[in-house]
Simulated assay, not measured.
Amino acid sequence: MARNILILGGSTEAYALARELADRPDIRVISSLAGRTGTPRLPAGDVRIGGFGGADGLAAYLRDNHIDAVVDCTHPFAARMGWNAAQGCATMDVPLLRLERPAWVRQRGDLWDEVADWTEAAPLVGTRSKRVLMTVGRQELEPFAGLDHVWFLIRSVEMPDPMPPFTQAEILLARGPFAYEEERELLITRGIDTIVCKNSGGPTDAKLAAARALGIRVVIKTRPCRPDTPKAADVAEALCWLTPICA
């Protein structure tokens, strides 16, 4: 009998894991997407879109769909889903793994200001920045909208809706990953003096490498706390964790 594996998805790692599992006859893989983008890229295997209704709703889904294991591959900043997953899996006694790419680590030459939230970041930007590249996600722009003397280049997969009332802003619709040379060219041609981003982690990030080379300051949000659960740093580790469950 095939084992039912639920992937809480949306990240690059989630797509890669689903691709590895989808063709296995001993596994039925189901990827859950939050549905925050209008035209999401669909992973291999079965897909559901939308929330569960909190930890209790997730627990009910696990029970009703006979889920044998859950792999939380949500974005490092999707903290609420992480806590709901831990509670829901504990309620139903379903094994849970957190698959999370390693965080970026400050390197020699980096000009980083690490912040815990955007209300802490906005004054830093307001006091010393003139032209800012924002890569924080379209739903987290509001704290910066009152900085009328700063020009923002807001890079997003989709148009912010509603758009906060920025006095000086340009929207750049684009989906990564981005190459080092194009990031360097963007920073130079747009006269960027500050990057505002999250510590999403993973392989060396091109915009951070370009900022390091050009001496551009980075205001970077640190990751939120998550539950203490088994963790994997990559898909290979996640597959090893799944092996005894699917045996």
Rank of each mutant, 00 (worst) to 15 (best):
T119M: 15
T119G: 14
A121R: 00
A121I: 03
A122L: 08
A122M: 11
A122F: 05
P123I: 01
P123V: 00
P123Y: 01
L124R: 07
L124E: 07
L124T: 07
L124Q: 06
L124G: 08
V125I: 14
V125D: 08
T127N: 12
T127S: 15
S129W: 02
K130P: 10
K130Q: 12
K130S: 13
R131H: 07
R131I: 02
R131C: 06
R131V: 04
V132L: 00
V132S: 00
V132Q: 00
L133Q: 01
L133K: 01
L133V: 00
L133C: 04
M134T: 06
T135V: 11
T135S: 06
T135C: 04
T135R: 06
R138Q: 04
R138H: 02
R138I: 04
R138T: 02
Q139Y: 07
E140T: 07
E140I: 00
E140Q: 12
E140N: 12
E140F: 01
L141M: 04
L141G: 01
P143V: 09
F144E: 07
F144R: 02
F144L: 07
F144K: 06
A145M: 07
A145W: 04
G146R: 09
L147D: 08
L147C: 07
L147S: 11
L147T: 09
D148H: 12
D148W: 04
H149F: 09
H149K: 13
H149C: 08
H149D: 14
H149L: 11
V150D: 03
V150N: 01
V150Y: 01
W151G: 15
W151V: 11
W151S: 14
F152D: 08
F152P: 09
F152T: 12
F152L: 10
F152M: 11
L153R: 08
I154L: 02
I154H: 00
I154T: 01
R155A: 10
S156A: 14
S156V: 05
S156D: 11
V157L: 15
V157G: 15
V157Q: 13
